[in-house]
């Protein structure tokens, strides 16, 4: 299973942010996206996840599991209820392996609203293996994780890769993943600046 992206153009609002994005991620490989703030890493990931339609090129959202900045957890539900819900949505039944991988067993019966930011992050990342999808799209996955849990996440991502999965990760820290290639997103920055005089641009957005 290889995710091959050819000549993809991504937009945010009415602005073309990235142009001519081309890369391939094979089974067991990880691609680390680099680039300054605003370079278009999140835009690229949202396009790959199928949330924003690409302007040119094509994507395969059905292969991808997307983890955004926001955790996507319901504060009034417990960790177990949140994970079980996502497991049912994606048609997997067993949440136990994900719970073990992210050391969530002591937190299972606690309400998400009562957890710390790092604990919420772990619960959000535990959703990824539950999707059963081969390509993980991760947007700054290690935000608010401490060193131990960064290592735990790196181990879980490594296990996913070893199992034939792949990952596209936007991150600023080195996760030490085997076989990780780096892609500098700013290489694909769309050359033309947005037209500041277009009176309709803002209204359309």
């Amino acid at each position: 299973m290889t995710l091959t992206i050819t000549d993809l153009s991504c937009r945010r609002g009415e602005t073309t942010v990235l142009h001519g994005v081309t890369f391939a991620v094979g089974a067991g490989e990880a691609l680390v996206l680099r680039g300054a703030n605003g370079a278009g890493k999140t835009t690229l990931l949202r396009t790959l996840a199928g949330l924003t339609p690409p302007m040119t090129g094509s994507v395969v959202p059905d292969l991808c599991a997307y983890a955004a900045h926001a955790d996507g957890l319901k504060g009034q539900l417990t960790v177990a209820e949140n994970l079980t819900f996502w497991a049912h949505v994606f048609g997997t039944r067993d949440i136990a392996p994900a719970v073990v991988a992210f050391d969530l067993a002591p937190l299972l019966s606690r309400r998400v609203a009562d957890l710390s930011a790092g604990q919420k992050r772990r619960a959000a990342l535990a959703r990824l293996p539950l999707t059963g999808r081969p390509v993980w799209l991760l947007d700054e996955p290690t935000v608010s994780l401490d060193a131990d849990n960064v290592a735990r996440f790196a181990a879980a991502a490594g296990a996913h890769l070893a199992g034939g999965g792949s990952a596209v990760i936007a991150t600023h820290i080195d996760l030490g993943l085997p076989g990780a290639a780096t892609l500098d997103v700013s290489r694909f920055a769309a050359s033309h600046a947005p037209d500041a005089h277009d009176p309709f641009a803002e209204a359309v957005e």
Partner: peptide, 14 residues
């Protein structure tokens, strides 16, 4: 939308 679940639901198989 606020907690991000809507994005995730949109990418889910539903």
């Amino acid at each position: 939308l606020d907690d991000g679940s809507l994005d995730l639901l949109a990418t889910a198989p539903l």
